[in-house]
């Protein structure tokens, strides 16, 4: 009965969406806001990567909300999983090959992560992507050697301060120019590493926060998932 109802519902949904399919104009979007941003963003924000210009400039407030959501998820995961049971056992460490590989990968991943963060306003990439790579560096280390301990305290400080830095940059703009998160420091010369005003700083804050957040969730899950047998 329940399955039948769900099938009918899904069929209805599919039908509804399919009727739309034939009417919408794909491949030729109206681009009311889009083309205007394409025209003014290089001058106003100065980032070569226009997606980053929107992400941290025009829609920077969304990005703050997004950071907050990730933070809320990490915090809620902490609430759910609580602290590690002292009696729980950990996975045995990985073999020699795995450990050596992880040790070799770790610095590489960290460098790539920071590179992606630092060039977010020039090339595809940015705080979120780089932050995930940073977190991955710690995942690999943790997976190869489960006994290694990620310091929750350190993670908390990094994510707290990085998040606060993002907001404080915004408030700085509020005090300096009257608008929260308005671009500061001038656009600079397009295409240079130090350009686009405060955008690289925001990217760095996001990268550190995302990295710390994901590493924190991972550490919580790894702690919780210590098998008993």
């Amino acid at each position: 009965m329940r399955n039948l109802a769900s099938l009918l519902f899904a069929g209805g949904l599919a039908f509804l969406l399919l009727t739309l399919l034939s009417q919408l104009a794909f491949g030729t979007p109206p681009m009311r806001v889009g083309s205007e941003i394409l025209a003014v963003a290089p001058g106003e924000v100065g980032a070569a990567n226009l997606v980053t210009a929107i992400l941290l400039g025009y829609r920077g407030f969304d990005t703050l909300g997004e950071l907050a959501i990730l933070f809320a998820a990490a915090t809620a995961a902490g609430v759910v999983l609580g602290r590690r049971r002292d009696d729980a056992r950990r996975d045995p460490p990985g073999g020699e090959v795995l450990r050596t590989g992880a040790d070799l990968l770790f610095p590489l991943l960290v460098v790539v992560g920071f590179y992606v963060i630092a060039h977010g306003h020039l090339t595809p990439g940015g705080g979120f992507q780089g932050g995930v790579i940073l977190a991955a560096a710690f995942f690999v280390a943790l997976l190869a050697q489960p006994a290694r301990h990620l310091s929750h305290g350190l993670i908390l400080w990094i994510e707290g301060l990085a998040g606060a830095a993002f907001i404080l940059i915004g408030i700085w703009a509020l005090v300096a120019s009257g608008d929260f998160l308005a671009p500061l420091l001038g656009p600079g010369r397009m295409g240079e590493l130090l350009s686009a005003g405060t955008l690289p700083l925001l990217s760095l804050a996001i990268g550190l926060k995302v990295g710390a957040e994901l590493a924190g969730i991972m550490a919580h899950i790894a702690d919780a998932e210590a098998p008993d047998t």
């Binding site: 979007p29 941003i37 997606v51 210009a53 990005t63």
Partner: peptide
């Protein structure tokens, strides 16, 4: 259009 790319990232 760059806007949807930002939306999807979010």
């Amino acid at each position: 259009d760059p806007v949807p790319q930002v939306l999807v990232l979010t």
